[in-house]
Every structure is written in C-alpha cells, then in structure tokens.
C-alpha cells in the first residue's frame, strides 16, 4: 500500500516539475503584493516606533512569514477538480484501488512537496533582499518554538486541505461549486490573522478570531516564532478536535456525494 502511495506522490511531484515555470511565476506573484503591503506599513509607522505592541520590524516579519505560510499550506485544487466532477470525468479515478479522496490528498501532497522544495530558497532570498531595503528583523527562535511552529504548519495544511475538499464535494450539489473557493479564501484571510495581526483587528473581530480554531493557521505559528505565544495542551486538543470535525464532515459529504454522481463512462 505504501509503495502505491509513494508512487502517486512521486508522480504528482514530477507533474509539478513539468510546470516549474508556472510555479516560479506563482511564487513571484505572491511576493509582489506582500512587498507592497510591507511598504504600506512602513508608511503607516512614520512617526511611530511601536503600534499595538508591534515594532515595525516585527510587523514586517509577521507579514512576510504569513506569505510563506500561505505558500506552504494553501490548497487550490478545487477549480480544476470541480470541473472534472461536473463533466463526469472522475470515473477512472473511482475504479482505482485507492479511494478518490486519498488520491486527491496524495496528488496534493506531491505538488506541495515540490512547491516547498522549490519555493524555500526563493523565499529565503526574498527575505534577505527585503531585509536589505526594509527594516525587517532577523528570525531568532528556540528549538521548541520551531517544533510548535512546524506542528501548526502541518495543522494549517490539513485545515486548508479539508476545507478545499469540502468546497470540492459541494460541487456535487452546486453548479458554481468551484466559486465557493472564494468563500474559503475570504474566511481564512479574515479569521486566521493572515492579513493582519489579531491586535490590529477591531475588538468584535478579535473575540471571534480568538474563539475560532483558524487562528492556529497563521496568527499563532507566527507569534510562536516571534516568541509572543506558547502552545498549551488545550490548544492542541482544540486544534485536533477541529481537524476531526472537518474529517468527519468530509467523510459524510463524500458518502452522500457518491450517491449523486452520474456520468456516461467518463
């Protein structure tokens, strides 16, 4: 079984390798808006050394790490997979000895491994370059902080993946299923601390973000790396429960979706 899995991951990795120019462009396209956001914050901080507990260098670091996390954890397979489902082209995947959901996961994992291997040097270079022209502080962290950060990165990826799967499975019911991806992106951008640290949000939004487990995707890993937060056992339990909930929802949707699927031989 494991050999089948690794074969699928390897296959997906090689397919991604074929699209390396596109991947390179995507990485650049994620860095450009970030650079502009950093410049915006530099101008916001004019005449202020610290805002809401963040020095400029810490805030710039926060926003840059958010971009890196976004690249590492985000999943964007909904659109093309949804089109496959709508056009009845997943028959051949359903007849394989590995379940459809596992195939989607392994394919995404292979592409993700390629993306990480390819993008990390580019991100490191970008960070170095930006630190030459902007006051971004260097990253200093302990091993325990880094471990907690890694745990939350894996959590972030799994949440992104399950949410993407839920969007995908809704395609079985909704004609514009792939458009639901935008709701996913909006929700994550707003409620995870991806676009701005939680302390910069209005109080009503802060309380919502603090209550939801999406904060473990961006706000917490970055703040752990910046040594502002520490992961407690109840945080881990909350995150694990949320993952279980998402997994259960995916299984439920998949069982019902299969009953709705029909095609004429793919």
């Amino acid at each position: 079984m494991w050999r089948r899995f690794t074969h699928l991951i390897k296959h997906s990795f090689l397919v991604s390798l074929g699209y390396r120019s596109e991947v390179f462009l995507w990485i650049l396209l994620s860095i450009v808006p970030t650079a502009v956001v950093l410049l915006i914050w530099v101008s916001v901080y004019q005449g202020a050394s610290e805002l809401r507990g963040f020095q400029l260098s810490q805030l710039l670091q926060y926003l840059f790490i958010a971009t890196v996390i976004s690249g590492i954890t985000s999943s964007h397979f909904e659109s093309w997979r949804a089109r496959e489902i709508r056009e009845g082209k997943i028959d051949y995947l359903l007849t394989k000895p590995i379940s459809y959901l596992t195939q989607v996961f392994l394919h995404d994992l292979g592409a993700k491994i390629f993306y990480i291997a390819y993008s990390i040097p580019i991100f490191i270079f970008s960070y170095w370059f930006l630190s030459q022209v902007l006051p971004i502080s260097g990253i200093q962290f302990s091993l325990i902080n880094f471990l907690q950060f890694c745990i939350l990165i894996v959590y972030g990826y799994l949440v992104e993946f399950f949410l993407a799967l839920i969007v995908l499975l809704l395609t079985f019911w909704f004609e514009n299923g792939e458009g639901l991806e935008h709701f996913k992106m909006l929700t994550i951008s707003l409620l995870s601390g991806m676009m701005i640290p939680i302390v910069f949000m209005p109080p009503w939004l802060q309380s919502i973000v603090q209550a939801l487990p999406l904060k473990y995707m961006y706000a917490w890993p970055i703040e752990i790396l910046q040594q502002r937060q520490t992961l407690q056992i109840q945080d881990l339990l909350y995150a694990a429960a949320f993952l279980l909930f998402l997994y259960g929802l995916v299984r439920l949707l998949w069982r019902r979706a299969l009953l709705r699927y029909c095609s004429a031989g793919g």
Binding site: I40, W41, S43, V44, Y45, Q46, G47, A48, L51, R52, M195, I196, F200, M201, P202
Partner: peptide, 11 residues
C-alpha cells in the same frame, strides 16, 4: 480601514 485605523494615516 484596519490599516488606516492603526495610525490614522497612510503616507
């Protein structure tokens, strides 16, 4: 609006 509210000005 969140960014502006941080220091009431952008550039």
């Amino acid at each position: 609006s969140l960014i502006v509210s941080a220091n009431n000005t952008i550039a």
